[in-house]
Structures are given as C-alpha cells and as structure tokens.
Design a protein around this nucleic acid. Structure first.
Lengths: 206, 206, 206, 206
DNA sequence: GATGAATGAGTCTTCATTCAT
DNA sequence: CATGAATGAAGACTCATTCAT
C-alpha cells in the first residue's frame, strides 16, 4: 500500500514538473497533453487519473507557484524582521522581494501573470488550500491587526490594489522594458505603493 | 478602378467587423478563420490577402478599439472642458469615462485587457498610426506641457502606471466582482490615481 | 465458506443491477466498464472475475430480462386461466401482457429489441437455462400439445413469427409512434396474430 | 468549375463506397473515420466537408441502399407486370424479390436491418428525398388506389406491418438459420403477408 | 479473491494554410 | 483578385484490459 501511494506521488510530481517546464518555456497553448506525459514518462491515460484537463493542471501549478513566491518572501521577512519594523516597510519588502525574484526568473512572471486571477490567488494563499503550512492571508491579516501605528480601511482591497499595480507594471517593464526598464520603474512603484497604503489609513481624531 | 478599391475596402471592413464580433462574444482562441470569413461572407483565401493570420487581425482590432475608447473620452472631455480646469481632474475624467464605458461593455474589456501591451497601446494612440486623425499621445503631452500648475517628471511612465492600475483593478472588479464590485473600488481608484500624479510632481523651490 | 459465497453473490448481483440500470438509461455503447463497477461499488478488476466483457454481461442480462417478462405473463395467465380457454386467446393474452409491460417500460423495450436474437431468446426460455424455475418453452409446447381444438404445424416457427411481428411493430409504434401510436396498431396486431395462428392450423379431413 | 464539381462528386462517391464496404464487412461500430478516408484515398478533414459524422454517412447510405432495393424490385415488377395482375400478388412479388436479393447479399441485410427505422425508410422512399427519380411510396399509394378489387383500410400501416414481418423474420432465418432456414420460412411468410392484406380489406356490403 | 493504478492504442474532430481554378 | 475544396498534422479524450499488491 505504501509502495502504491509512493508511486502515485512520484507520477504526480513528474506530471507537475514536466507541465511546469513546458508551460514556462513554450507557453500553455503550445503545450499539449502529449508533450506533458512524454516528458513525464507516463502514459497518456495516466494524466487523466490526476487532472481533469490542461487547465486543471495549469491552475494548480499557478496557485502553487504563487504560494511558493509568497512563502519565500514571508520567510525572508521573518529573518530580517527587525530591519522593517513599520507595516509599510514590510509590504514594500515583500513586493520588492517577489518582483526581484520574478525579474531573475522572467518565464515564471510570464506564466503567472496572464493566468492569475484574484480569486485563484486568494485561494492559493489562504486556509482553503489544505496543503499549505503557512497561510499568507492569515499572516497578512495578523500583520494588519497588530499594526500599532495606524488602522486600515479595507485591507484586502488594499492588498489587491498593490498586487495588481505591482504585477501589471512589472510585467511590462521586466518582460518588454516598456515603457522603461524595471529598475527605472522601481522607485516610482515604491512611492505609489506607499501612497496606496496611506490612502487606506483611517485618520484617527482625538 | 475606384470601384475595385471600394470593393476591397468593403471586404476589409466586413472581415474586421465579423472578427471583432466573434472575438468579443466567443474569445479569440475559440474563433477560427473559418468563422470569421463565414460571417464576413468572403472566401477563406481572401482572408490571407488582407491579414497574415488571426493574431494580425487581433492586434489591429485591439489597437483600433483602444483608440476609439480614448478618442471618445477625449471628445467628451473637450465638450465639458471648462468643468475640469485642473490637469488632475482631466485625467480622472478620462479614466472614469473609459472605465464606465468598459463597465457597460464588459466583453470589450475582456477582449482588450488580456491582449493589450503598452507597446501596442502606444502605437495605437500615437502618430505612428496613420489612420488616426486625433493622436491621443500628442494631446496628452500637450496637456502635460500646458499644465500651468505644476511640472511632471516622466509623464509617460505616469500615464503607463495609471493605465496599468486602472485596467488591472477594473478587469477583476468589473468582470469577476473580485475582491469587490467595481463601484466599491472606484473611489479608492480615484484617490490612488491622484496620489500617483502627485508622486510625479516636481516640487519647485524658489 | 458460506460467507464467501454469499459475498460473491452480492457482488455479482450488484454488477448485474448497475449494468442493467446503465444499459437501460444510457445505452450499451455509452456505458463503460468503469461506469458499471463504479455504480456497483466494486473494483474494476472484479468485473473480469465474473464476466468476459461488456457483451457477456449484456447477453446474460437480456436473457434474464426476456425470461422475466415471459414468466410474468405466464403467471398472469395462470391466474386468469379460465377466462382464456382457447389456445389462440392464450397467445394473444401473453403477447398483449408483454407489450403492455414494455409500453410502460419503454427503455426495457429499447434495450431488449436491438439485441435479442431468436437463439438467445430460445435459450433464455428453455431448459438450457439452469437458473430458470419455469421453462416457458416447455409450457408453450405443452399448451400446443394439449390444445384440444386443432393441431398446429411447426409450432416453433409460429411462435417465432408471432414474436418477430409483435416485437418489431411494437418497437416502432411504442418508441417512435411510427407510423402510428401503439394503441392504434394494437387491434391490427391482434388480428394478424390470429391469422398467423390460423395459417399454422392443420386442416383435419375426416 | 465543372472540373471542381466533378472532383467533388468523385470524392463523395469514394467516401460513400468505402464507408459502405467497411460497414458491410466490419460493422458500423468497428469502422472508424480513419478507415473510411484511408480506403477512399482522401484526407481525414475531407470527410467532414461532406458529412457531419459517422452516423450521417450511415443514415444516408442506409436510405440509399433501401431505395435501391425497392427501385430494383419496382423495375422488375414493371417488366413482368402482366404476370401479377392482382394487388396482393404484386406485394408478394416485391417482398420476394427484395428478400431474395438480401439472401444473396447477406451483409446488406445485416447492415440495413439493425439501422433502418420506419421514419428513415419512409423518407428514403418518398418525395422528401429529392435525389430520387422514382418514389416508391407514390407508386405504392397509386397501386393501392387503382386496386380495382378491394379497398384497403390504413394502407400505410399495412405496408409497415408487412415490411416489419418480412425483414425481422428474414433477418433471423437468412443470417442465423434460426429457427429454420429462410427457404423453409418463405411459404409461411407469403401466407402471412396475404393474411395481413386480407385483414386490411374493407368489406363492402351491398 | 479483490483491488485500482497504469497503460497506450484508438477515436473523433478541428483548423490554419495552400493552390488549382 | 477571389474562391473554397482539400489537406493532414495536431489535439483532446476514452476505455478495455492487465497486473503488482
């Protein structure tokens, strides 16, 4: 029994890995099930034991990839936590960390960006995803609540806005150098993110 | 002679129109050349006399659609020009106008968003595009220059940023109501756009 | 020991029942072994312990279904035996009984008709079939022999002819209402069956 | 233009012929589109220019085959018309002619029988079918009307009944020799057909 | 006996592109 | 210029059957 389960995991991993590599290098539309199973070294029918279709494996891969990015950023933040005492700086750190990662791994950016919806993203980072040990959304909300400085209105809309701004501007600057290279965009982006956060701060009157 | 040219134009228009309708209602991947020529009432081979392939007609259509949106917004702004004397308000007006348009015509949003790159966008709105009478980019730069209030650093990056933020947040809120409906996002979006503009203002010291 | 045998019988019955239900509702071609074992709650390999393939279980089911129909008709006839003293009326009664049954259970008609050959049919109703308690063919031949009125030439051909006529005309009228609804066909059918019987009567000259 | 039309006809005929041969020898289920186009010597896509799917070509072939049989019988009847002055004898002649044909061409019988519904049959032989020159149903109805001897009630139900009886009994006797060979069945069948006709005769009282 | 994961040949169907007319 | 018939590679998906556990 243990052997069978082990074997299943090996097959599943092989399918994930080969699909990821092919999606990254050739794009999703240009990747066929045939290509995936070939590279994974399993039979075509086996694919359908694990996935409904190509879009099923795509969604699971994107969620997984997004999760990994955020978990890396989270861990890096924990290490240097003391350097970023302010909430605002923590957010900037995480965004920077992820964008730098994507800048060095451009294909991942291309893969994720065009396919990641907020719904999928939220699911990938939250409790719904049982395979997760760390739940980024939980962490985010705790970070918001424990924020001693200020109170935030609609923190989830704020996160959404930051992510959309960061991902869409970085997509164009990193992949196409349009309208300017990523490095040139970066200082502006950081300023904008800080501005977005400020726009969500609830002014507390005495 | 003129009749032949006229006939060619009719065919071209028919192809554009039928492709647009099909792309909008069924999506690009689900639309075949066969569908396009069928609806246009021309022969399959004729398609290749006017376009390289499906992605050629797609790009031309997207550019055309984006242009039309901006020209409409531009004309609307001209009409009510006096109501928006400040540069900042003009920008907000244009963004609002376009997003409201896309909100009532959701399929256009879907069609444009996933396929519009900054490069394509810039080309659609600038002098490069010979079929254009009004060049939005020219208008934008004149608007920036004549801005009596303040001076802007990198106005093109600023425009890029605003467009990316507006389009990516509206895509999710308008089409998926995620994380909130568009109407709920709108006030935040306006605040953020103003903040982005402020971040680009060059403080002038005496 | 008995428990193992019992368990086997349960599995066999479950397979029969689920295959029957699926054949009836989706048709044989549209039913896969996967569907059958799924519904039956047994493993795929188990199917092959009991049946050679899909057509094995189909044939056994058809024979069983046909047998059940005739046994029901036979029992009903026994109950009301005195109402139908004449041989001819007994035949008509049985045909009517079965067709009315199929008329209320149209899917059974569809299932049986296209797959029931005379050979399979004969086997289902005769001594060859060891699981049968009542052997309709025996009963039929006794009925023929004891027929006090007249003698019949080739009673088996006669039965064959009646069954073919009744089943093929009822198939079309019951399932397609073609060329007329079953109810409209019924009086003609009865007349024809009587005529077929008369054609088999050996005229006895003194 | 003429050349293109000619070429199309050649392709269509090739597809019909190869499908017919394969259906006849291997059965419909065991014949794939691949087999059909291969044998016809055309590309796979070409099949879909002419037919919706396998069942489209099947239905057209069955209708065509049934039509051909009846037209042959009709022509044979015309030749020997004087030998069969009575309506009843004409019907018997046609049935015999067709069954003898099917007896020498057993695969055609197998092909037609399991797939021919009354609806399809009627369509194949009537005005609906524009490719037909001779409309058997017209001929039949004229034959019924001009019948000087007697009047018939529901002549279409009568035809239906005769065809169902003849086809179903011949199917089993010709292909399986069950319960007896066709030759042994034949005299009974003729008697039964006459009886069916008599059952449809309207008794005219003076 | 029972299981169910794995197989991979087999099937249908689509479609961009070409080219003879 | 315009046509549209023909192509055939490419794709997704199914399923009876086997066999290690």
């Amino acid at each position: 029994m243990g052997k069978i389960q082990e074997n299943k995991q090996i097959k599943l991993d092989a399918l994930f890995k080969s699909a990821y590599d092919l999606f990254i290098s050739n794009g999703i539309e240009k990747t066929s099930i045939h290509d995936i199973v070939n590279k994974a070294g399993v039979a075509k029918g086996t694919f359908y034991l694990y996935f409904k279709d190509k879009y099923d494996i795509r969604d699971r891969l994107i969620a997984h990839t997004a999760e990994k990015l955020f978990v890396s950023a989270y861990n890096a933040l924990l290490t240097d936590q003391l350097l970023y005492p302010k909430f605002e700086d923590k957010i900037i750190f995480i965004v920077d960390y992820i964008l730098d990662e994507l800048n060095t791994n451009k294909m991942t950016l291309r893969f994720i960006y065009k396919n990641l919806s907020w719904g999928l993203f939220r699911k990938a980072l939250s409790n719904d995803n049982l395979t997760n040990e760390i739940h980024f959304m939980d962490f985010y909300h705790k970070m918001v609540e424990k924020n001693p400085e200020v109170h935030l209105k609609d923190p989830e809309i704020m996160l959404f806005t930051i992510i959309e701004l960061a991902s869409s501007t970085s997509y164009s600057t990193i992949l196409d150098n349009e309208p300017v290279p990523y490095e040139e965009m970066k200082p502006y982006l950081n300023d904008h993110i800080r501005a977005i956060i400020h726009n969500h701060i609830i002014e507390e009157h005495i």
